[in-house]
Amino acid sequence: MELEVKTLEGAAAGSITVSDEIFGLEPRTDLIHRVVRWQLAKRQAGTHKALQRSEISGTTKKFVRQKGTGGARHGNKKAPQFRGGGKAHGPVVRSHAHDLPKKIRALGLRHALSAKVKSEGLIIVDEAKATEAKTKALSARLDKLGFSNALVIDGSEIDGNFRLAARNIPAFDVLPIEGINVFDILRREKLILTKAAVSALEERFK
């Protein structure tokens, strides 16, 4: 598959041949959905906690006589039905993570990249660099190209000035190739890959 290469100024910078096995698949939403669920479940903190009745501080002395009150026969103020009592079946600290085969995760990433190509949301640039770490200057360049909501994936090392200039731009993320993931690809309208990122992806899926 042949894709055009542009500069961050919008000028043409030739073309690049990419693998159909990475960028030319027919997107499968079920695979992409599985990977996104796995990602979101894995990053949940799982620190929610409610006190059970065994963890409440209080006496277990019988506080009302057994018969003659016309009410239920209670013997513990820590029971869930009382104010200040323990929570019945409340949340406990746990991990929400679940297993997903490595092959499915890799396949989900390839389908997410192919989905961006199919929706015309993928842009290849020659490089992502800035001469100075100025957010205003970079934002003006991006506005000319219509990149108001985008994810930039560069090679293993990101240009320092570009990273600093981009970090205060809303809805604009910059990641190295090691950090590429399905959820971040889908949450942004445009995916911008540098030529270094494309080479690294093809090497990774070889």
Rank of each mutant, 00 (worst) to 15 (best):
M1Q: 03
E2I: 15
E2G: 04
E4I: 14
E4Y: 13
E4R: 15
G10V: 11
A11V: 04
A12W: 12
S15Q: 14
I16S: 02
V18R: 02
V18P: 03
S19T: 14
D20I: 00
D20N: 10
D20P: 10
E21T: 12
G24F: 01
E26S: 15
E26N: 15
R28Y: 01
R28P: 00
L31K: 11
L31S: 06
Q39T: 09
R43C: 01
G46T: 09
G46V: 03
K49D: 05
K49F: 14
L51N: 12
Q52G: 15
S54K: 15
G58H: 12
K61P: 02
F63T: 10
F63M: 11
V64Q: 14
R65G: 02
Q66T: 12
Q66V: 12
Q66W: 04
Q66A: 06
T69Y: 04
A72H: 02
A72I: 00
A72M: 00
H74G: 01
H74W: 09
N76R: 03
K78C: 12
K78F: 03
Q81L: 05
R83K: 14
R83C: 01
G86N: 09
A88H: 08
A88V: 05
A88S: 05
H89E: 06
G90D: 06
S95V: 02
S95D: 13
H96C: 06
H98F: 15
P101D: 15
K102S: 10
K102P: 06
K102L: 12
K103C: 04
K103M: 13
L107C: 03
L107K: 11
G108M: 13
L109M: 13
H111N: 12
A112Q: 12
A112E: 07
L113K: 07
L113C: 08
S114D: 09
S119R: 14
E120A: 12
E120H: 04
L122I: 10
L122P: 08
I123H: 08
I123E: 05
I124A: 10
V125C: 08
V125H: 13
D126F: 11
A128Y: 06
K129E: 05
A130R: 01
T131R: 07
T131F: 06
E132G: 04
A133P: 09
A137W: 02
A137Y: 05
R141N: 15
L142A: 04
D143R: 15
K144W: 00
K144I: 03
G146T: 02
N149H: 11
D154H: 05
S156A: 07
D159W: 02
G160R: 11
N161E: 03
N161Q: 03
F162W: 12
R163K: 11
R163A: 12
R163L: 08
L164V: 08
A171I: 02
D173G: 00
L175V: 10
G179I: 03
I180D: 05
I180W: 04
V182M: 08
R187P: 04
E189W: 04
K190D: 00
K190T: 01
I192V: 15
T194C: 03
T194R: 01
K195C: 10
A196Q: 12
A196D: 14
S199V: 11
A200M: 07
